[in-house]
């Protein structure tokens, strides 16, 4: 294999989300609303897809300049990338590195798959309880439906 070194947009201050399964970075950026954020702030957002990784083979990586999301907000990444790591950088120095944790409650980022659920008919923000980690299973706060796998669909913030 040919050695290649690829660096993407070194950031001085912000957040790096690493160890994302290959192909999931775009979905994560949509769920976190990074597109809208970039439009608003003009800050750099770098999305790397299919990087080589000793532990994962291929992985994705996201770097967001000047972003300071709370742990809770970043924990939604765990629904898509359970083994992702978050590195917080300030003035070129790593100030914190942690793994994402699966939250107990998920907010209005998921669409309830039950078409008879009130959330699909009224303007009401969704709320879901994580009832199982493996496979990741959610229960709708309103209709009480439990669902997992491909039924977990994320709202796309454009």
């Amino acid at each position: 294999m040919k050695d290649r070194t690829i660096t993407i947009a070194k950031i001085d201050t912000g957040i790096v989300i690493d160890h994302i399964p290959a192909g999931k970075a775009y979905l994560i950026s949509q769920v976190l609303g990074l597109n809208a954020l970039a439009r608003e702030t003009g800050d750099i957002i770098a999305i790397g897809i299919n990087f080589e990784s000793p532990s994962m083979g291929r992985k994705d990586i996201i770097k967001v300049e000047n972003l300071s999301l709370s742990r809770d907000m970043l924990n939604v990444v765990s629904l898509i990338a359970p083994h992702a790591t978050v590195t917080r950088i300030a003035n070129g120095e790593v100030i914190e590195k942690h793994k994402v944790e699966i939250p107990g409650v998920v907010g209005d980022i998921v669409i309830c798959p039950d078409r008879f659920c009130v959330t699909n008919h009224e303007e009401v923000p969704g709320r879901f309880y994580v009832v199982d980690h493996s496979p990741l299973t959610l229960r709708c706060h309103y209709c009480e439906s439990e669902f997992f796998g491909p039924l977990i669909k994320y709202k796309e913030k454009t």
Binding site: D114, F116, C117, V118, T119, H121, E122, V124, C140, H141, Y142, C143, E144, S145
Partner: peptide
Amino acid sequence: RHPLKGAARL
């Protein structure tokens, strides 16, 4: 009583 699931919770 409502035909939609979750209506009572809402």
